[in-house]
Simulated scan of single mutants.
Amino acid sequence: MEKQEGVTRSGFIDFIKGVSIIGVFIIHVILLIPPGHDYFMLGQFIDVLFRFAVPVFIGVLGYMTYKKYINIDNWSVFIKSKFLILGVPYILWSIVYLYFVPNHYYIPKTDIGLFSGIFLGDAEVHLYFMIAYFLFILLTPSIVAVLKSFSRRFMSKILLLISMLHLLYIAIMENVLLSRNTELINNTFYIVTEGKLPIHWLIYYCSGVVLAMYIKKFSSWLKRNELLIRFSVPIIVLLNVLLIVVLLITNRSQVIYFSPYLYPITLSAVILLFIFYKTLFFEKANGYIAYLGKNTFQFYLSHILFIKVVFIYVFNSDITIINLMATFILSFIMTIIYTILYNRFINYPKKRRRS
């Protein structure tokens, strides 16, 4: 693989995914704090601060669709491999969450059947996202066929148009939610489907594809303006903090995935992480974060189990700052251990065949 300035060109993808999975961990630890608790507003600020994580995963999928998947010829092998690598573990973990993991989040679990638990992502609070992700995977052959049928310039314009229309649509949906009109909310398809469909994440997916299309030009622009971008860091941070405070004051933080403001937060996070990545010269630290980025799927599936186990059985569900921080650290370590063991188990047959 070609190298550039001491790191592989794909290194930033693993880096940003690694940071994003840490963000997901933080979000789901914060989710232990119920509304009305003394720490709830602080938790909401931290929650929104890291909400760029899930959009980043979708953006990376769009990026990979153009940079990697567009060269695939045998789609049946692609779908089968994705089912074995992603689908089977997802089904198994859904069953675990449905029948063996206690409910502790303030979001109540209703009586969920096996069908809705697996096919609607209702088995646990974080699995809804996997439905949208799997649907994007299933749509990949069709998306690639469209991308190949038209010029890059034409497709980039279409994708930008889709992004702008989606941003407008999200703004309308946010107003519907903030209106507290129960009848309207319960009859609005976009809201009822709760982020489980590709339509909920189009702007991030399209942005990933466009970035992949013009990655060389974008990298060249960043290099020419590197000094200016570094000096803009304090301004970007300040604007994001002010934006998040406004979202908290106006109750928009409660519906952040249906808010158009999540897009600039995500875009700012990507820029800041790129700057941080370029200035992170400690190879070991980079490697550890990249390891997380290469194993985000197993992290994502399993981490809720370990968060609940630690918080319920170690800290007796007592919400303090120390307990929440310790819950994050201990459950994070447990998830890493699980991931290492999982990888060794999966790779063991390959090693035996080689020997």
Results as ranks from 00 to 15, higher is better:
residue 160 L to G: 06
residue 96 V to H: 00
residue 174 E to K: 11
residue 190 Y to V: 11
residue 172 I to F: 13
residue 189 F to M: 03
residue 87 G to H: 05
residue 123 A to W: 06
residue 130 M to G: 08
residue 152 R to T: 07
residue 88 V to H: 01
residue 160 L to R: 04
residue 181 N to M: 05
residue 160 L to C: 07
residue 198 P to L: 05
residue 171 A to W: 15
residue 216 K to T: 12
residue 118 I to A: 07
residue 171 A to T: 14
residue 110 T to M: 12
residue 112 I to G: 03
residue 85 I to W: 06
residue 146 V to A: 00
residue 197 L to N: 03
residue 127 L to G: 07
residue 203 I to E: 12
residue 86 L to V: 02
residue 168 L to S: 15
residue 190 Y to F: 14
residue 204 Y to L: 03
residue 183 E to P: 01
residue 80 K to Y: 08
residue 105 Y to W: 14
residue 212 A to H: 03
residue 198 P to E: 07
residue 129 F to G: 10
residue 117 G to E: 00
residue 185 I to W: 06
residue 111 D to P: 13
residue 146 V to S: 04
residue 100 F to W: 13
residue 87 G to M: 06
residue 145 A to S: 07
residue 205 Y to Q: 02
residue 194 E to A: 12
residue 197 L to H: 04
residue 88 V to E: 01
residue 180 R to N: 14
residue 212 A to E: 02
residue 193 T to R: 09
residue 127 L to R: 08
residue 162 I to H: 15
residue 172 I to H: 15
residue 95 I to T: 14
residue 106 Y to I: 04
residue 81 S to P: 02
residue 204 Y to E: 01
residue 136 F to I: 04
residue 168 L to M: 13
residue 87 G to C: 03
residue 77 V to E: 13
residue 144 V to R: 07
residue 107 I to T: 12
residue 205 Y to I: 08
residue 167 L to R: 15
residue 208 G to M: 09
residue 122 D to K: 13
residue 85 I to S: 05
residue 151 S to M: 12
residue 168 L to C: 13
residue 123 A to S: 12
residue 179 S to D: 09
residue 182 T to V: 15
residue 177 L to T: 07
residue 169 Y to I: 04
residue 90 Y to K: 08
residue 147 L to Y: 02
residue 136 F to Q: 00
residue 74 N to Q: 06
residue 189 F to T: 00
residue 126 H to R: 14
residue 188 T to C: 00
residue 111 D to G: 15
residue 206 C to T: 09
residue 155 M to I: 06
residue 131 I to T: 00
residue 209 V to R: 07
residue 122 D to S: 12
residue 176 V to N: 12
residue 126 H to T: 13
residue 102 P to R: 13
residue 178 L to S: 13
residue 83 F to Q: 02
residue 115 F to I: 14
residue 75 W to L: 06
residue 73 D to V: 10
residue 135 L to W: 00
residue 100 F to I: 08
residue 153 R to C: 05
residue 126 H to C: 09
residue 185 I to P: 01
residue 131 I to F: 02
residue 87 G to S: 07
residue 76 S to K: 15
residue 144 V to T: 04
residue 105 Y to M: 09
residue 149 S to Q: 08
residue 206 C to A: 12
residue 95 I to G: 11
residue 213 M to L: 10
